[in-house]
Design a protein around this nucleic acid. Sequence first.
DNA 1: TGTATACATTAGAAAAACAATCAGGATTAT
DNA 2: ATAATCCTGATTGTTTTTCTAATGTATACA
Lengths: 146, 146
Amino acid sequence: MKITLRGYYAMLALASMAGKDQNGGLVRLEEMTERHSIPENFLLQIFQALKRAGLVRSKRGVHGGFQLTRPPHRITLAEIIESVEGRILPGPLEERPEPTHRPESWRALDGFWEELRERVRGEVDAYTLADLADRIHAPESEMYHI
Amino acid sequence: MKITLRGYYAMLALASMAGKDQNGGLVRLEEMTERHSIPENFLLQIFQALKRAGLVRSKRGVHGGFQLTRPPHRITLAEIIESVEGRILPGPLEERPEPTHRPESWRALDGFWEELRERVRGEVDAYTLADLADRIHAPESEMYHI
DNA sequence: TGTATACATTAGAAAAACAATCAGGATTAT
DNA sequence: ATAATCCTGATTGTTTTTCTAATGTATACA
């Protein structure tokens, strides 16, 4: 039960877009990759997925870049993670579609599994991109009471 | 954000132990592997992990097998999953221990991440092996109102 | 005591997933 | 036209996951 670098990169990059409202909120990939040391072409792949999921828009050419399609407080972490690495807690049930070799006991778990999946997703869904960005861009508060 | 077959196999096998109270609750591996079509040596490995985590005991030899160390309602899914596939939602921070190449923005996420992790774990911890076993062994209830 | 039974341990192969990398293309502002 | 930027698909190297094999150890029972 893990999260991969894809999801992590996506969260970092999107969080760093959350503040940028100048030139229409357009942010270039390069700007994000160098700030967080993310391989540029890899982040590009990730943003294609985010785009397919409708979380960002893109503009090509000289003053191009990426842009959030919604305000940060209306984008949840669950959406971000699912966009780039598939459904939360998919479980091996979906990966093993051989109906013959799938014993009855596996099917009996389907409902149970879906219920647990929904509750976990609910937790991740409770956090928004705005929460994330706040934490990243206001870490100084912690330094005051050391 | 996924769970692997290891975790799934573990849940299935343990759930099928939950009912078995005859001969001291000892269940042979073979009995579990054939019921759920799980590769035997793979399940053996998984049970070694469950044993290290203290969720099962084992007895070798002729009338040997595995045995739960606690009643099913006192074993949570979080324990099972963590036993066989490590911490829930560890986050890439732990897997990337290169302190030099870890940018400040990553560290800024540590607290945030730990908080999310705890809440997700809490959800998985709310389900016990007994809940799981009930769902598997009483699926007939659903058939009555079709 | 010997033998079949069942777990124990370690090594490693095969396949899948992950994390990039690369090449060549398309669009846009200037 | 040119430079900047995103777009697309293929490919590659590494790690993880899944599974297999070989060999060893403890136990019950004839």
